[in-house]
Each structure stands twice: as structure tokens, then as C-alpha cells.
Nucleic acid binder design. Sequence first.
DNA 1: CTACGGATTTTCT
DNA 2: GAAAATCCGTAGT
Length: 203
Amino acid sequence: MKRLNRLFYERDTRVVAKELLGKVLVHEINGERVSGKIVETEAYLGVEDKAAHSYGGKRTPRVEVMYGKAAVSYVFIIYGMYYCFNIVTREEGVPQAVLIRALEPLEGLDTISKNRFKKSYDELTKVQMKNLSNGPGKLCSALSINKSLNNLDVINSNLYVEEGENLGFEIVASKRIGIDYAEEYRDFLWRYYIKNNRNVSVL
DNA sequence: CTACGGATTTTCT
DNA sequence: GAAAATCCGTAGT
């Protein structure tokens, strides 16, 4: 399948977040394709958005990549233990990004299972099967995404997004998760997910 | 199936 | 020194 190009990511962040649904996130690890269908995303609208790390034009070493060009990865550590994977959107100087919140596992199921639970796909319990990549921290563990993959151009690296089958599905917009500190921005419907998909993190 | 609290450490103030 | 774009295990419906 074809990779998405940089123009895709340079558009309005909410449009990018919505259109990433149904696409496939791929990480080539030692020549193996490990991938999942994107089923849940969130848009972070930068300077104006009280939930964004770049709110108010804040520039720190961590946030700096969001000020760069579109289609670059932004990976950060959350709660000291987990990673979150984002893709930077918009033109240079506009610090916005899309957080990938959940995947439906597609390829490399054994690798994903071992990354998450140290056992093969066959040996998973029903609960483990459901919890492979249905959350932002979980999918990073599943696809071996860590801080070393921060600030990487997803147009020409081993980590990228490609076109999916994109068969008809409905998109649900809802409030974003885990940003109760963001005052009025807490309530904007900038989280998107595929309706009736069982891999969405929170219903 | 829901509710709760603890884990753990980077990052910025 | 405090907060943080989360996850997991346990306990109770």
C-alpha cells in the first residue's frame, strides 16, 4: 500500500485526525511489518488549545518538534512509564499534532503479543487479546515505539502510515480523554473514533 | 462491567 | 516539588 505524503499532514489538524481513521500504522522491525488499523485519534490544536503541550506558544526541548514540519513523529513519556505517539501537522512554526490513541492489530500479531504480554498470540487470554493496542500507551508498547523514534520523518523512515481499505465506516466525535485540567477546551469534540469498533479505548 | 488507587519518572516550575 | 494526552490489578455489582 501507498504511504501518505507530507501534504496529507499539512492540512487542518482536525481533518487529518479524522482522515487518519481507517489508515494503517506500520513499524518495520528487523524487516518484519508490524501494523495496526488506526481506529481512534485526537487533535491537539497548539497555541490556542489549553490541552496541548504547546499551549500559549510554550517552547521547551520536549515540545520543540511540534514547531517543525508536518509528518514528523512526536513521542513523549507520560506518567513516567508509558509512551504516546503523535504525528505533527500543519506548516512549520504551527505546533499542532494528532495523537494516535488506538489500533486494531493487523500484521505481526506474535511480535505484538510478545511485546505486550511476553507470549505468542495463540496463548493470549480473551482479556489480553482485547488489550493489545486499545490505548495510546498500549499501542506504543505493541509496536515497539519509544523515545528513540521521536523526531522522525514518517515519510521516509521505518515508521509510517499507509492507505487502508477504507471501507465505509461512521466516525464518532467526542471529548478528549485525560485532559480535565484544560478548562473550556476539555469539552471540545476533538477526539475521533470508528463507530462500533471494539478496539477503541473508551466508549 | 464499573470504580478505585497505586505505580513510576520525565519534565518543567 | 508537583503534575502528567496512562495502565493494571483488585474489589465490588
